[in-house]
Design a protein around this nucleic acid. Structure first.
Lengths: 189, 189
DNA sequence: TTCGATGTGTTGTATATACGACAAATCTAA
DNA sequence: TTAGATTTGTCGTATATACAACACATCGAA
């Protein structure tokens, strides 16, 4: 499935680059981080950077993906159908991820971050929907995953803006019935 | 003086190996640390280890030397004649070094550690004696450095065994007059 | 004792990384 | 605006590292 074997030098170098980038992100703005800064910190040659990444945006993309995936996978992969608990876990993972980012001053790249979060969210949600409906492929479910992805992501944005007096769990919990059973749900339920 | 340029890959790999060794030393006994353990932790190939070090003993030797040199150089290199202050600094550096080692469980290698400490001590002391006596080379001073080296090292061993109720500074301070002015010194001085 | 397993140290070959140079883009100050 | 300085992205060549295989040593259990 994954490529059978990757040269350890590649893994090591990528890790050095990514770690250095994360380290530097804590020290200065994204826009002030040069490739030279990164490679110096990582103790690798500048040309080697371009062997692994197209440019700093590509690196940002991959770092964010990786950090987010760690947050998502750990909490979900075994329990794989969509219920109240798993939705709460996903939502918590996302808010955690965004909190960890806000310390790191990636100002001006909210759009990149947002896109990455939604992309991964859709993949995970689609998988869970497929399992739940016991099927292999389904365009309607795919679209549903997209809608859910945007919706959940939007909720996390809203939580950061207006809801931080509640925990993420409380914040999302009251809406879950509408997600699970649909908007025509009787509110007395 | 030092080799004009070393390949960064060499520096990086040596650092990875040394850091991994220090990390592992905190986890298990020296005798239980294999080359494979080190190279796995360092994310390098086992053969590469032998490109840089003869064996684990050679590594131990170099790691200890480096850690000790950091302790010694920072505290001394500018003040370069032997007086009360510099002796106290040297003694403190050595006891610090040994304290940091005792956390790291290198049981069974006290002899190696002792030898390395004394070797470096003799070099530093000899340099300082040469400066003090304003000469380039002198066999008597060299032997004196050896004697002083063994003596100061011995004092640090004694301090660890029986003197830890005092600070290293207090411990060595009262003997310094005898070192500086000789054992025939009148004790009323 | 013998045997299987594990660790050591070495070697030849494939490949990732270092290096220096380069043109082009971007920024900064005058 | 112009000119000088950084930064970016790319290339060819040299070299450090990866890998697999090897003989040998060491060790614990049968």
């Amino acid at each position: 499935m994954t490529q059978s074997k990757t040269d350890p030098r590649v893994l090591r170098t990528r890790k050095l680059i990514m770690d250095s980038f994360i380290e530097l992100s804590g020290q200065k703005e994204f826009k002030d981080i040069t490739v030279k800064d990164i490679t110096t910190e990582a103790m690798i040659n500048r040309a080697t950077f371009y062997y692994h990444f197209q440019d700093v945006y590509d690196l940002l993309d991959k770092v964010l993906s990786e950090v987010l995936l760690v947050n998502l996978n750990c909490s979900i992969f075994e329990k794989s159908d969509l219920n109240e608990e798993s939705i709460i876990r996903i939502f918590t993972a996302i808010t955690n991820f965004q909190k960890s980012l806000s310390n790191r001053c990636h100002r001006g790249y909210e759009d990149t971050i947002s896109r990455i979060i939604r992309e991964h969210l859709e993949i995970v949600l689609y998988k869970m929907l497929l399992i739940q409906h016991n099927t292999k492929e389904d365009a309607a479910l795919k679209t549903t995953a997209v809608i859910l992805g945007w919706g959940i992501y939007g909720a996390s944005v809203e939580w950061r803006k207006n809801g931080t007096d509640k925990s993420p769990e409380e914040f999302i919990k009251s809406s879950i019935p509408y997600i699970l059973s649909g908007i025509t749900l009787d509110s007395k339920n």
